[in-house]
């Protein structure tokens, strides 16, 4: 399956291409930074990941129980697969509760402060992808 995706409202979002269950190319061509990615993942206001997920973060208290562990995500998935799961998980599972981190369309009653903004920027998505790819150990 090969679908061409161009995000409308493109002044905020870069165009990307979904290939199978992955976005192979980095968003806007940017490469991610592992340390920045980790900081985003553990940030409760920015990445929000640990509201739902657990993961290999012994320093982090109060990790959620609504989603699979992030441990081993980098072994289970390629960078391209991780990228699509972050950009728009709903494409793979319309019933998912995982927010679409790089999408602004098809949302309802978005708060004034968040309108027409993705949860993470293209660069931040790349940072998180780079970090997740390092999580090879399933423990």
């Amino acid at each position: 399956m090969l679908l061409a995706m161009t995000a409308a409202d493109a002044d905020e979002l870069r165009a990307f291409k979904v290939t199978g269950d992955a976005i192979v190319e980095p968003l806007g061509g940017a490469r991610g930074d592992v340390a920045r990615g980790r900081a985003i993942v553990v940030d409760r206001q920015k990445g929000l990941c640990l509201l739902c997920h657990t993961g290999p973060f012994p320093d982090q208290r109060f990790q959620g129980t609504l989603a699979p562990t992030l441990a081993g995500a980098g072994a289970r998935w390629t960078e391209g697969q991780l990228r699509l799961r972050l950009v728009d998980s709903a494409k793979l599972n319309p019933a998912t509760i995982m927010p679409s981190y790089y999408r602004t369309e098809g949302l309802t009653r978005v708060g004034a402060a968040w309108q027409n903004k993705p949860v993470l920027t293209a660069q931040e998505v790349e940072d998180v992808v780079a970090f997740l790819a390092t999580l090879k150990d399933p423990q």
Partner: peptide
Amino acid sequence: TRRVGQLNFSCANCHDDNAGGKLAS
């Protein structure tokens, strides 16, 4: 049951489908 907000949740997503689960603490 309507999904709303930038994070795109309905009340039911949390309170029917995930009640008893932990959202952080």
